[in-house]
Nucleic acid binder design. Structure first.
Lengths: 155, 155
DNA sequence: ATAATGAAAGTCAATATTAGTCAAAGATAA
DNA sequence: TTATCTTTGACTAATATTGACTTTCATTAT
């Protein structure tokens, strides 16, 4: 019923491998062949679904023996998660990236489910309801960063 | 009582599916074709008949493989209290009044301390950081109302 | 060594495929 | 009649797909 588009299916495939392994290493053209899409669609999937906001690191190499390697990283392992995230957010963030950030915080148990939902609602496009996109994205960044900064001062 | 208009019929159709399933996931154009109406009429039906006040959550995605998904949720007992608050807030609220609203929700145990703090941070004048006071107050109203609407149901 | 070749992956913009918005026109009810 | 609800469609926005062109790297030939 769901995931009718190929990108979602490829995403699930890669994540199913990552569920059992530390990382995935693919040959772009092989995955493209496997799902009958053009190679550059793999880049699209990675760019939209395996960002650092989502908690993934991607590295690759071109030329003979080239590869794309995707690794799931745990933000809590970093010296300071919140600082890292705040840097990544900067002064503007899209709803999609915000979702990824909040999801990562939930997975790392910085936020519980209810808190994560609250933040997503507060920063939802429709909630903010401003027509200027730049303003919307900067408000979202301010709200999330405000909350992240608050989290570091409470027990 | 006869309710012979198409919007009512589409409403009944969707609700009959929801009687047996947790949620419905449709392709807008398919339903529009099925009932011989323009696609945007589906939006009209959803907007007028599947509101959160009636206990429905709606989410959608555009682009290839896009969909509209309607989910029936359980409304909580607090729902009418929330209605009252939403009315009181209207389309603008000062930081001081917002504090009072959040405080009372905390006292009524609708929110715990951490959640209350989150909301106050998200709607704080410095967090929002807009110069225009009217805009600030209306953003604050939208955020709090968005959250109150979210608190209506069990997720 | 250096140059040429081929085998990868990357970029980007055009196109395709959905859903959303809004306001005008039409229909119905009060 | 008038107010509200419904229907329609033109326009907008978001997301996905595709392919031509570019860049990088390893290997082979000179």
């Amino acid at each position: 019923m769901q995931s009718q588009n190929i990108s979602d299916i490829i995403e699930k495939y890669l994540k199913s491998i990552l569920a059992d392994a530390e990382h995935v290493e693919i040959r772009r053209s092989e995955i493209a062949d496997l799902f009958n899409v053009v190679p550059s669609q793999i880049n699209y999937v990675i760019k939209t679904r395996f960002t650092i906001q989502n908690g993934y690191l991607v590295e690759s190499k071109r030329g003979g023996g080239g590869y794309i390697r995707i690794e799931k990283v745990n933000l809590l392992d970093d010296a300071d998660v919140l600082d890292t995230l705040i840097q990544v957010i900067g002064d503007s963030i899209t709803q999609r990236d915000a979702y990824a950030v909040v999801q990562s915080l939930y997975e790392d148990e910085v936020l519980n489910r209810r808190e994560a939902q609250l933040i997503l609602v507060a920063t939802d496009r429709n909630t903010l309801g401003v027509d200027d996109h730049d303003l919307e994205n900067s408000l979202r960044a301010r709200i999330i960063i405000g909350i992240l900064n608050h989290l570091r001062y409470e027990s």
